[in-house]
Write a protein that binds this DNA or RNA. Structure first.
Lengths: 353, 353
DNA sequence: AAAATCTTCCAAAGCGCTTTGGATTGTGCA
DNA sequence: TGCACAATCCAAAGCGCTTTGGAAGATTTT
């Protein structure tokens, strides 16, 4: 029976015992010195620290994790849906925000991409083999099975977004309904009556809430929502383009669009541009802006009127919360709802005609 | 001296010894049965497998990693530059491609976001504490210090892109120079003479090569590259927009643009649209298309004429190569250069006038 | 001066797995 | 029948760290 293969370059590394021997100290003392425990003389600690630095010593994280029982790792499981991954453009910035916090707190980020059908197995695996201390859940669907599953597995988790009754688990979300209600009101106040909604996939909770916000605003003024002016799908540029094109070319075209992402809005802009319609004059567009770093909406004044909320800031805060939950497992549920700004840009104006 | 905190939910988990006891077998045999070694009877193996499944047993990955000396983890270190993260939109799709392979091969993906100034320290840390078996390097700059560093550290690595003499290390890259030379020729053949280049940051190797391709094509026809028609910076929509706007409003405006990403091209399109210029008629645009899943360029025929190469496929292949390098450490350098297609879309046409 | 208490260090026992080096039994061949 | 050789299994030794439970010496208290 032969082992498969052995890493070669490991020989370079010094271990705790060697370091201790070179200092004429026990591994115990060296370990404590390095980890900041008080029962070691200050002078000794300094000696140890200096030697560790000189030898380029870092404790083997695998051994440390085994010994402590902590993985010092947080899992992000991204379900791959096969179609344009909805999370794609969004999750990158979210990850950056979260990653900053993890790095600062000494946690690793384990990113796992799995086919949607295998997410349950993936979570069970993570829980069973103990490679993470907690997991982040993004973009929950209605009655998302992940929540019950993770609760059952006893793995600390935080949901970015929420679903169901939003009780009994930890989440951070933005006020999607309120934001879209407000945006719709804004368009209504400008005199628009035929307003289109181009939404994300309405299997996702955030998209449902946005739609409700839209519908409630219309209902409050006793305006009927027009089914042919509502669409929802993965938030790609092409979906925005195709949908806007179809609506604009059809009967009773909308005078305004409310769309769920900047990327969709870019598609809408393309469709409008092709038809010679100027945004903010011939047609109005409001979108939700996650403040993606490569799609800055602010250059020369905001291009789009937008409900905005930084996805990166959300990632940062989510990471903070999750870490505090891991450190304090019997903390009561943390739930945080962020309000959303409405920024007025160049893409909206009074209803023409 | 009290430990900081202990995970609670670990108690649920069964370990190898318990599983072995319940089967009246030794841990040795159970381990071997589970790992597919031959020195265990088929019947015994089946019993073990069944019991493991029934008990929801999965070997503790921390212990396994310590015992084997392998981390079964691959590191992606993303330097945060402070400004719009160039890698942002690109690296998400790259990650998805790579992540699929990692999952299939049983590797974890450790994602580490660090301020650019700390990347060296981050790599040293990874090497010293042994939490990864290899690392992926993206978007190399000219004479990128990471390459020498990783070689020194002896950590297996693969560069997506290349730099310097491209010798002696493993990389996968696309033929950036050839692609941009070809794209420039395409525009020249259409009669364009004032062609603008809107490039990524030219500290990056890929951007330098693209520029050289552009310049070589012009030089071959003895056309001077115009400095006021060349710009380079982080590839954001707003940079594309602002640059195109400036160029179009200035003296001797370009009749065509060659740009380094779809996102930039979207900005160019916005600037053109605002000025009433139709793409493919009044003005031509070619971009490089990484085939990002949420920026599909193919709906209803390709919107942009583009040099294209799937960043996701690159991620996938990079992961395959890196894993094979890890398994076979003294493999001679693997270097793979991908050719790039030119897809003709609606955004180009003969030079007007 | 003896007892009590810190202070500072260490030996040894894990953490849960893999792997080495047999031991035991069964089989094929002389 | 006896010996070589598979085929199966196991005990025990790590992997490199943390943490428990002292021990020895220094310091304070009575």
């Amino acid at each position: 029976m032969t082992p498969l293969f052995k890493p070669v370059w490991n020989f370079l590394r010094m271990n705790l015992k060697e370091l201790a021997d070179s200092l004429n100290l026990s591994p115990t003392t060296v370990s404590r010195a390095l980890n900041g425990y008080p029962e070691v003389r200050e002078e000794t600690r300094n000696r140890v620290m200096a030697a560790a630095k000189a030898a380029n010593y870092a404790p083997n994280s695998r051994a440390r994790r085994l010994a402590t029982g902590r993985a010092m790792t947080i899992g992000h499981v991204i379900p791959l849906t096969g179609k344009a991954e909805m999370v794609n453009p969004i999750f990158a910035d979210f990850l950056i925000g979260a990653g900053e916090v993890y790095a600062a707190e000494g946690y690793d980020l384990l990113l796992s991409m799995v086919p949607e059908a295998e997410t349950e197995a993936a979570f069970r695996q993570l829980a069973a083999n103990g490679s993470v201390d907690g997991v982040m859940v993004q973009a929950p669907q209605e009655n998302d099975p992940r929540i019950a599953l993770l609760a059952e597995l006893g793995l600390p988790f935080l949901v970015h977004g929420r679903t169901g009754d939003a009780q009994g688990y930890n989440w951070l979300d933005i006020a999607n309904l309120r934001a879209f209600r407000r945006a719709t009101d804004f368009l209504l106040d400008l005199g628009h009556r035929r307003i289109a909604l181009i939404n994300g996939q309405e299997t996702f909770d955030f998209a449902r809430r946005r739609r409700r916000g839209f519908e409630e605003a219309l209902a409050a003024r006793e305006i009927a929502a027009l089914p042919h002016l509502m669409a929802s799908d993965a938030m790609t540029e092409s979906f925005g383009y195709l949908t806007a094109a179809r609506m604009l070319d059809g009967p009773n075209p909308p005078t305004a669009f409310l769309v769920s992402s900047v990327i969709l809005a870019i598609g809408v802009r393309r469709a409008a541009g092709e038809r010679g319609l100027r945004m903010g004059r011939d047609i109005s567009v409001i979108c939700h802006d996650d403040e993606l770093s490569y799609l800055n909406n602010d250059v020369g004044g905001p291009a789009f009127t937008a409900t905005r909320s930084s996805i990166r800031a959300a990632g940062k805060r989510c990471a903070e919360i999750l870490i505090s939950l891991i450190r304090n497992p019997n903390h009561p549920p943390i739930q945080e709802l962020w309000d959303v700004d409405l920024t007025v840009g160049h893409s909206t104006g009074p209803c023409p005609g």
